[in-house]
């Protein structure tokens, strides 16, 4: 096994405890949520039917049926754990580096003194973040049909409209970002994600190399990355003209993104080998 893969494995294991807690919170919260919300809905229905002395059919005519996504997109039980996981991972993008500098003599010594290219340390950390994201998305993908079944099990057929999972995803903007519908979208969403993580890593390394002065350099580097990535938009905005077809637009965007990723890795490699300070 290459040292890079060993590092990925090691980095994953360092976050595993918190990660499992995040997963547990998500599972418990979403499943509790679907039960509580569905029962609540049923109670509401019963109260309305008995209170207003109307029939089931009249109720449905008046209030309509509900779908699983009505629950999902409106319930904190469902959305809060997702937000928590996103927040935790965004925090960990920084913490995955800074934790290595904690304490007196710290783990960063160990990492920088490994007999393998220092860039591997960075690539392993980036890979770890990506895998953690994929892991959570997979958990969500597994949870959705389970929750949908619970929903169906509690809400009688008359009161609900069932949608296949892929249609559910299309209805929810939040979920469609995390779970893209096409391969191209997948590449775009996760490509931008990877790019952002690498730019942030480079910014962190600037700070770790030059400390206070490094913060300024980190901000400048971030701005540079933004300028490069949105170069065509700036040009178009400046010239007040749209030269490109959407597909060409996408290709240029891809190329610019690749440039930002390449630049980030190159600068990081330079900083790790020539400028880093333990």
């Amino acid at each position: 096994m290459s040292r890079y893969l060993k590092l990925v494995n090691f980095e994953l294991s360092r976050f595993m405890k918190i990660y499992l807690v995040l997963i547990a919170i998500t599972v418990i919260s979403q499943i509790t949520g679907i039960i509580v919300k569905s029962k609540g809905y049923l109670n509401e229905v019963h109260r309305t039917i008995y209170g207003d002395s109307i029939s089931k059919a009249q109720y449905i005519e008046e209030y309509g049926t509900i779908t699983f996504m009505d629950y999902a997109t409106s319930s904190l039980w469902f959305l809060a754990p997702i937000a928590l996981c996103i927040a935790a991972l965004m925090f960990y993008v920084f913490f995955i580096w800074y934790r290595d500098w904690f304490g007196k003599n710290t783990f960063i010594y160990r990492l920088l003194l490994l007999p393998s290219a220092r860039l591997n340390v960075l690539l392993a950390k980036a890979t770890t973040i990506l895998l953690l994201v994929f892991g959570l998305v997979s958990i969500q993908l597994i949870l959705l049909p389970i929750e949908n079944n619970i929903f169906k099990w509690i809400i009688p057929l008359d009161f609900r409209t069932d949608l296949p999972i892929h249609e559910m995803l299309e209805q929810s903007h939040e979920l469609s970002v995390l779970i893209p519908r096409s391969f191209v979208e997948f590449i775009i969403h996760y490509g931008i994600g990877i790019m952002a993580v690498l730019v942030i890593f480079t910014a962190i390394l600037f700070e770790r190399s030059y400390r206070l002065k490094g913060i300024l350099m980190a901000i400048l580097f971030g701005l540079l990355a933004i300028v490069i990535f949105f170069l065509q938009d700036f040009v178009e905005l400046l010239l007040q003209k749209n030269y490109l077809y959407p597909i060409e637009h996408l290709v240029v965007r891809g190329i610019l993104g690749t440039i930002v990723i390449g630049l980030s890795i190159w600068v990081s490699n330079f900083l790790l080998n020539k400028k880093i300070n333990v």
């Binding site: 304490g103 003599n105 010594y109 160990r110 007999p115 080998n273």
Partner: peptide
């Protein structure tokens, strides 16, 4: 980094993760 199989550094405090055991550190 190519030299680090030939030269090693023992800093003045341990640079392993405190939650690891001695055996795990050695395995690392």
């Amino acid at each position: 980094d190519r030299s680090f199989e030939k030269i090693t550094f023992i800093p003045d405090a341990i640079t392993m993760i405190p939650s690891m055991t001695i055996a795990e550190s050695m395995q690392f």
